[in-house]
Design a protein around this nucleic acid. Structure first.
Lengths: 377, 377
DNA sequence: CCAGGGTCGGAGAGCGCTCTCGCGAAACTG
DNA sequence: CAGTTTCGCGAGAGCGCTCTCCGACCCTGG
C-alpha cells in the first residue's frame, strides 16, 4: 500500500535546489520562467505591481470596500485577470477573523462504547446537508463537516470555532440530551441547532410544529374511520418525540378517543416491529397506528403483516418524516412531512445573520408540517 | 444579494470602537474577563510568556518537531493547558501552505437549466461522507463540502485548492462525463475520485469490481433456476453502468443464456418501473431481472406486481448497491453490495498519502462486491 | 584543561492580507 | 479666491504562526 515510489524523486528535487547554495544565494531561487514574482500563486503584491498601484488599492477593489476611481478599478481588474489572482483566504482570515466557513456538527452521544451517532445512511443527513448548502453557497460560505461523539470531539469543535477556523456552527443532534448546544452557548459562539434543545437555552433553532403534525395524523386517521388508535412513540427525552406523542394524544382526545395505547420505541425499524407486536398483544381491535417516525412505522407495518393484518385495510399506519424509504416501501407510507431542506436552509440563514450581527437576538423558526398521504393510511 | 444591511451596523460598531479612542486606546477593548493577554483567544506568544520560554519553543512542543528538553516540554504543556491555547490554523497555514482540510466535491452536471446533481436524499451520499470522515478524522483533517454543478462552481473549487484553502479534493461524481476530474488533473492538484473516470486520465480512484458484482447476480439467478433473464441498465455513458451490464451479459452467456433482453434506465425508480413494463411487454416469460441499481430494481418490482407477477415466486429481482431502501422494502431486495464506506475511507487515505508525498504515483483500489441475499431473489 | 562537535533554545524575518492613518488634490463654501 | 472639507490613494503596521539561523551550553576526547 504505502510503498514509496515517488519519495526518491521528491527528495532529489529538494537536494538539487539547495546544494549549490553558495552561488545562487543572492539570486532569487529561480532564474527561470518567473510568473509574476518569486514562486507560486500571484499575490496582492504582484497584482499591485502589474497595475502600478499600491497593495491597499488592489485590496479595496477586490473587496469593494471604499470608493476607488473607476479608471483605476479597471486597471486593477485587468491586472487581476492577467495574473490570475485569487485571494489567499488564510491570510485574509488571519486579519479579519472571519473564515467564510461554518462547521456542520453532526452530534451524537457515545453509548457505552458503541459510538452510536447519526446514521449517515439515513437520508435525513443528506437532506439536511443539501438544504444548508443551498443557503450557504449564495453567500460564499462553505460547510466543514465534523462529527461530535465524544467529549474530545466536542472540545475540538469548540476550539476550532474559538480559534476562528470557522465562524459558527450548525448543529444536527440525534438526541435531546446532547451536550453540544450547551457548550456552544457557554462559549458564546454563534450557532443554530436543528430541533428545539432538550433544556431551554438561549440558542437559535429551527423546528417543525411537531404537535401540529401529530394532530394532522390524528385527524386523518379519524377521518378515515379509525376508532381504536394506538401510538408508537420515540424516546421521551427527545423533545420532538414528546411533542409528537402528546400532540397526537390531545388531538385524539378532542375526537373522542381519550386513551391512546402507547408503546415507546427508539426510532429504529426493529423497535417499531417490537412495539407493534406488543401493542397487538394487548389490543386486538386496533385499526390505526401513529408512529413518531417512518422507520418505526415501517417496522409496525412489518409486524402487522406478520400478524396477518392488512395495511391499510385492517389497520392504517401513519409515520412521521416523509422519508424516501417510506415513499418506496409497499404499501407506500402515509407520513407527516417536515420540510427538512427548507429548515436546514433556514438554519444556515439564521447563522449567517447571527455571524454578521453578533448582537442579534436568539430566534427560532417553526415550520408547519403537512400530511403526505400515500397508501398506508 | 449583496445589499448592505449589515454594512451600516458594522460601520457603526467600528465607529463606536474608535471614537472614544483617546481614553480607551491603552486599555484593551474589553475590561471584562480577559483571558491571558489583550483580547481574544490565547496565542503562542501568551503561552510562551506564561511558560517563560520563546514562541519558537512552544511551537516546537506543539508540533513535536525538534527535540525539546523534557522539563521544558512539561512547563510548556502546562502553560498550554492553563491558557487553553489552540493553534490558529489560518496563521499556520499561511506559512506552511497546508490547511488540514480537503474538499469533498459533490459533482454533477447541470442539465438544461435544472441543476440535476447528486441526490442528497440518497443514502449513498451520506455513506460516502461517513466513510470519508472515518478516515479523515484520525489524521485531523476536516472535509469541506462543495457542490460543483456549473462551470463557475468548478472554477471555485479549483481556485480554492490553488490558493491553499484546502489540500486536496475527494470527488464524488454522478456522471461519467463530469469535467471536474480533468480540471483537477490539469491543475496538478491532489485528488481522488469515486469510480473510474469516463475517459482514462492520470488520477487516483477507488471503485468496485462492477463486472464481478454483475457476475455474482447472474450466478445467483441461474442457481435459483432462472432461465429467462433480463437486465435493466443504467446510462451507458457511465462506466460503471456499462461494466455492470456487460459483466452480467457475459456471465449469463457463460451459463447458457446468450441473449439478455436489456432496457436502459437512468438509475431512478421511475425509470425502473418503465423499463420493467416495456420488458414485460416484449418478453412474457421472464423469470429473473437484474437492475443496475436498487432504485431501478425497486421500480421493477413495482411494475412486476402491477402486472400481477409475484416477486420472487414468479420473477426474481436483483439490484445493485445494497442501499438501505432496498433492505426496508417488501419484499426485501437482494442486491450486490459495494462497500461504500470502506471505499470512501480508502479514497481519503489515498488522498492524504498523495498530499503528504506529491511525487507518489497515481493509484487505484478496486473493491470486491458481495451478494446480499434477501427476499426478492 | 581545552578544543571540537553536538544539542537545544531564542531572535527575527517573513507568509499574504486588511485597515488605520496621513497626505495631497479636488471639490465645495462664503 | 482663500479656507475648509471631502475624497482617493499609498505607506506601513501588524494578524499568529513557522522556520532558519545563531549563539549558548554541555559533553566528550585528546
Amino acid at each position: 500500500m504505502a510503498d514509496e515510489p515517488g519519495a526518491g524523486s521528491a527528495s532529489t528535487a529538494a537536494r538539487v535546489a539547495s546544494s549549490p547554495s553558495g552561488t545562487l544565494e543572492a539570486t532569487p531561487p529561480s532564474g527561470l520562467p518567473v510568473g509574476t514574482s518569486g514562486s507560486g500563486a500571484p499575490t496582492l503584491e504582484d497584482v499591485a505591481r502589474v497595475a502600478g498601484v499600491s497593495r491597499a488599492t488592489v485590496s479595496r477593489v477586490v473587496n469593494g470596500q471604499r470608493r476607488v476611481a473607476a479608471d483605476i478599478q479597471a486597471v486593477v481588474r485587468e491586472a487581476i485577470a492577467t495574473t490570475g489572482y485569487v485571494p489567499n483566504l488564510a491570510a485574509r482570515s488571519l486579519v479579519t477573523r472571519r473564515t467564510g466557513a461554518v462547521i456542520v456538527v453532526v452530534s451524537g452521544v457515545e453509548e457505552q462504547g458503541s459510538p452510536s451517532t447519526i446514521d449517515f445512511a439515513d437520508p435525513f443527513f443528506g437532506r439536511v446537508v443539501g438544504g444548508m448548502l443551498r443557503a450557504l453557497r449564495p453567500r460564499d460560505v462553505d460547510p466543514i463537516l465534523m462529527l461530535a461523539e465524544t467529549d474530545a470531539d466536542r472540545a475540538r469543535v469548540i476550539s476550532s470555532l474559538r480559534n476562528g477556523n470557522a465562524d459558527g456552527a450548525l448543529v444536527v443532534s440525534t438526541r435531546g440530551d446532547d451536550p453540544m448546544p450547551r457548550l456552544l452557548v457557554d462559549a458564546g459562539l454563534p450557532a443554530v441547532v436543528f430541533a428545539r434543545p432538550g433544556r431551554p437555552i438561549p440558542l437559535s433553532f429551527v423546528d417543525v410544529a411537531n404537535r401540529d403534525g401529530a394532530r394532522l395524523a390524528a385527524e386523518h386517521l379519524v377521518a378515515r374511520g379509525c376508532r381504536h388508535v394506538a401510538a408508537i412513540s420515540g424516546p421521551l427525552d427527545v423533545p420532538s418525540a414528546q411533542d409528537r406523542l402528546s400532540g397526537f394524544q390531545d388531538a385524539m382526545a378532542r375526537h373522542g378517543q381519550a386513551f391512546v395505547p402507547t408503546v415507546g420505541g427508539n426510532f429504529t425499524y426493529e423497535s417499531g416491529v417490537a412495539a407493534m407486536a406488543s401493542l397487538l398483544d394487548a389490543y386486538e381491535d386496533l385499526d390505526g397506528v401513529f408512529a413518531s417516525n417512518d422507520l418505526m412505522a415501517l417496522g409496525a407495518i412489518e409486524a402487522l403483516q406478520a400478524a396477518g393484518r392488512r395495511v391499510p385495510d385492517d389497520v392504517r399506519v401513519i409515520g412521521f418524516d416523509d422519508s424516501s424509504v417510506g415513499a418506496l416501501s409497499r404499501p407506500a407510507l402515509t407520513s407527516v412531512r417536515q420540510p427538512i431542506e427548507e429548515m436546514a436552509a433556514e438554519m444556515a440563514r439564521i447563522l449567517l445573520d447571527t455571524i454578521a450581527d453578533p448582537g442579534r437576538r436568539v430566534t427560532s423558526t417553526i415550520f408547519e408540517p403537512t400530511l403526505r398521504i400515500r397508501d398506508s393510511a
